[in-house]
Design a protein around this nucleic acid. Structure first.
Length: 272
DNA sequence: CCAAGCACCTGACGGC
DNA sequence: TGCCGTCAGGTGCTTG
């Protein structure tokens, strides 16, 4: 499930390997993965040079010479892999042939992901984009605390809310709450300022470490070269329900919050 | 302002 | 062996 670290690793890889290349042909074997009419999508991407690849929240942005951006959301199972020569596969949704004989392929088993082509001026007016919260790695812990302090919502839900903090998903939210010793159902307003500062300091550390480890691969995630990440080996709670806590040996438990499974240690995460 | 539930979609897995 | 239910989860939407 690509979250901030995974998308960041992908963006860095694609920037390294694709900037300066020109798209020579665009194929769309599954047009419903587009949020732009297919004819227009092809017309506006073919013959365009790729001038940058970047990330905002969980969005992967491939900027073209025209200042159009290919805006990918990978959702749960999306992949953007660059290489070649291409072998067409069952779940390919979009393929771009580049002028050096390589291909960028967007594939997605579950078809939740999408690609939307927008001029940068239009992108900046898009509600989803415009309303995104601060980037945790470009903000101080204090700035992030300001996003949640005093709110009467559960901290887990706030961490997952892209308008509060950008890029955090279920895995990194659980890992961060565990490291900070905060129960996922705690109301933000009931957490001291000092504890919130700790929380966001941990969040930045977890995200930074995950990027350094090339992201986390649960099942589908691959980086831009098709390789798995390694941070899943550092998970302390995610996917470990029933296992003993690494700190105190108490069996880890789960609870549903904001429609998602939260795994936590009932002994270590008590802050209310 | 906040929460819950559903929709989208497929594959993996457990139970029988 | 095979069928069926459940789960995984990001985001948008509706409803309370």
């Amino acid at each position: 499930m690509p979250e901030l670290p995974e998308v960041e690793v992908i963006a860095r890889g694609l920037r390294e390997s694709m900037v300066g290349r020109t798209i020579t042909r665009t194929e769309v074997p599954w047009p419903t993965s587009l949020r732009t009419p297919v004819d227009e999508f092809i017309k506006r991407t073919e013959s365009q040079e790729i001038i940058d690849v970047s990330r905002r929240a969980k969005l992967l942005l491939v900027t073209l010479r025209s200042n159009d951006a290919l805006c990918f959301h990978l959702k749960m199972t999306g992949r953007t892999v660059h290489g070649g020569p291409v072998v067409s596969e069952a779940h390919d949704r979009i393929r771009f042939a580049l002028d050096d004989g390589t291909f960028l392929v967007f594939s997605d088993v579950r078809r939740f992901g999408y690609c939307k082509l927008m001029h940068w001026s239009e992108l900046q007016e898009w509600d989803f984009y415009k309303n995104l919260g601060p980037e945790p790695l470009d903000s101080t812990p204090k700035q992030l605390v300001e996003q949640v302090e005093g709110r009467r919502a559960r901290i887990k839900g706030l961490l997952l809310n892209q308008q509060i903090v950008a890029g955090v998903g279920n895995i990194y939210a659980d890992e961060t709450l565990y490291r900070a010793g905060i129960h996922p159902a705690t109301l933000a307003a009931d957490i001291s300022n000092g504890k919130l500062l700790e929380l966001f300091t941990h969040l930045r550390e977890v995200l930074t470490q995950a990027i350094a480890e090339n992201g986390s691969s649960i099942s589908d995630y691959r980086d831009s070269g098709g390789n798995a990440g390694a941070f899943q080996n550092k998970f302390r709670v995610y996917g470990r329900s029933g296992e003993p806590c690494q700190g105190c040996k108490t069996p880890l438990k789960t609870v549903q919050i904001a429609g998602r499974t939260s795994t936590y240690c009932p002994a270590c995460q008590r802050v209310k």
